[in-house]
Design a binder for these strands. Structure first.
Lengths: 209, 209, 209, 209
DNA sequence: AATGAATGAGTGTTCATTCAT
DNA sequence: AATGAATGAACACTCATTCAT
């Protein structure tokens, strides 16, 4: 019985998060009214406050859930791979695919940065640190084994991660937007090859000799 | 006499922009009260409204001025350079130096994205397009001359630009913040080498032969 | 239960209208602050906005309610009367009595004209038209039966109605005003005889030999 | 020389009043900005303040000037007439003609009532009192000479005056409005006959038999 | 005398949050 | 547990008036 109750609570929490993500992504944090989310769920506003302390907590919960999903996807798709090059290309592909499949989360991501700088920092660092650590490990090993050139592991890992974010944003500014009529014409995934190539091979022609 | 007046108006406008940038960067757009900017300048609120239509216009003017400065810096430092590799490294260095020297602008940049998506898009595209075109030209020529490998010009140019943005943001989230007590410990410019190397050489060891 | 709620809502609405009429009449539309009305009712400002869209709507609701009352009074007191002369005198008396008993409404009436010309026109025409039509009918019949002299029905009906308004205003300008210390010394009703006589002796067939 | 200056000042004052009347009538007191009047005259705002203490004074000056014009017209057209009936009909005609020829003043008149109740009262009473006194004299004499029926002089005089005001307002609400495309289709003057007849046939002794 | 840049008081409205039912 | 009526803090913007030039 307790279990049942707990499950119900969990399910309800999920429903709220889904509705909130939808509305927040559509209108942005400020313009979103708690009442609109409640109405979307056909519940009273008070109910939302039983599940989340306040509007900000709800918003951050949406964000954290999204980030957790990203982390999970990255883990599932990258960890099994052993070849360092393939690890990189899998990371790029996974990252892009993930956000192609959850455009609302991109909007949330953009919002959270300026609305809650400090919370963003916290969540960002918490969720991404292990992922950046993984990159660093890959780099370190691959440099040692001679697959990758000699490089500054910390800064390069940061740069790789930053490139993914940067491409996401550039793309978002130009193509995204919930109101875009034809959102499927172009996809982040289309960038996978170019970005992977850039990261792995760089710009220079290397067929020296 | 007209000249004097015009000059005075210009000077006042600049003073307002500087004060506004400072306050907006410190508190963010929403939490900034027009009265606070006015007080900082020791003028009445009405005066600000003589120079800028409303709060949003003032904010966007700060943003546009900053972007104009970036464009100018990029042009001045990159255009004279001929060697494609040096062009790339100069772009990275200029970009990072520019934001190291104007951290308030970074905060503005982060804000504007989520507060005024559409205006951001407009200004961003307007000011950056010529700069992205330059990258594309460089790539196209360098591929033809065999300095750069065969690559997708549009997508790679986008990725290069995105990498710079991404690094700026990653760094910003971790190190920046107007409230940071010791903001000079680490600098964006420290990333120049690693990023330039990543862009030019990629990760893979190329010691063919 | 639904009934109870509906009733409560209705009662609250009436209370707000009463308080608003009082404050609006005392201070005029512009100088009335929403907060003053709320304070008078010991409720929060937000509550007023649950019942009325905005300040203007509240004001116009007060006005419309008053006009509805006037129409009702006119109907109740005039319709049952058959004799044309008595109909006229009843109209004059009812009109004057009504405003003697609701001086706040007079102030509202004066305000609404200049503040919301168009809304005034709309409400005025909507509520008064049937009443003017009644006058016209009375005139038409009475002319036919020879009780009233031959006259321009439309213009004379307008003039009769206008006379009532005009007397109300003249009186108001001189005697009224919520601040008047002794508001009961003179009354609109005191004008009933003189006005009725003026109107009637002009309407009656002067069956001079 | 002094004379010249005085004349110039006078002329300027008149120009300001004309412009102010125009703008005030168009937009209403509240929505009229001092700057708009100044711009219309191609002078600085400060200049207006040399001629009128403040916005309210300017508005009231427009009103008072208009009322003075009405008084003058009434005097010129009525005083020479001796026959009591003709005096009445001349009053009606003059009043209606005056406002047909100065519709802007009607708008001012409507505004002033609710904006400045007390000042309206003062000016109204000051300017109209002599005119009402004239009506009273006419009534008194005519009753004595048997031309008019026995009546309450004060209240009837008030009612006559009120009828003119009332008709003006009724007409205004329905037909006027600065935005009316075809303002000449109907005129106040068209009411002259009906109103005169209403007033007179009520005034004349019905020496039946 | 004329100007118009500068001033800053003043207020309607929204909406996150609470809490009585 | 759920509701949604009630609350009231918070804030941009206008424009009459002043006064240095």
């Amino acid at each position: 019985m307790e279990d049942k109750k707990t499950q119900l609570v969990h399910r309800r929490r999920e429903e709220i998060l889904t509705a909130a993500k939808h509305i927040f992504a559509k209108n942005g944090f400020r313009r979103t009214k708690i009442g609109e989310i409640a109405a979307h769920l056909s519940v009273g506003k008070g109910t939302l406050y039983r599940y989340f302390k306040d509007k900000k907590s709800l918003f951050l919960a949406v964000f954290e859930q999204g980030m957790a999903g990203l982390r999970q996807a990255m883990r599932a798709n990258i960890e099994p791979i052993i070849d360092p090059k393939n690890k990189i290309s899998a990371a790029v592909r996974t990252y892009f695919e993930f956000f192609d499949n959850d455009r609302e989360l991109v909007e949330i991501l953009m919002q959270v940065r300026s609305e809650f700088k400090d919370d963003y920092r916290r969540v960002f660092l918490a969720l991404y640190s292990d992922y950046i650590v993984k990159i660093q490990e890959n780099l370190r090993v691959s440099v040692k084994t001679g697959v990758f050139r000699k490089l500054d592991v910390e800064k390069t890992a940061e740069a790789i991660s930053a490139t993914l974010h940067g491409v996401l944003q550039s793309f978002y500014v130009r193509e995204f937007g919930p109101e875009t009529a034809v959102p499927d014409v172009e996809k982040l995934t289309d960038r996978t090859e170019a970005v992977t190539a850039l990261l792995l091979k760089g710009l220079l022609k290397t067929d020296s000799a």
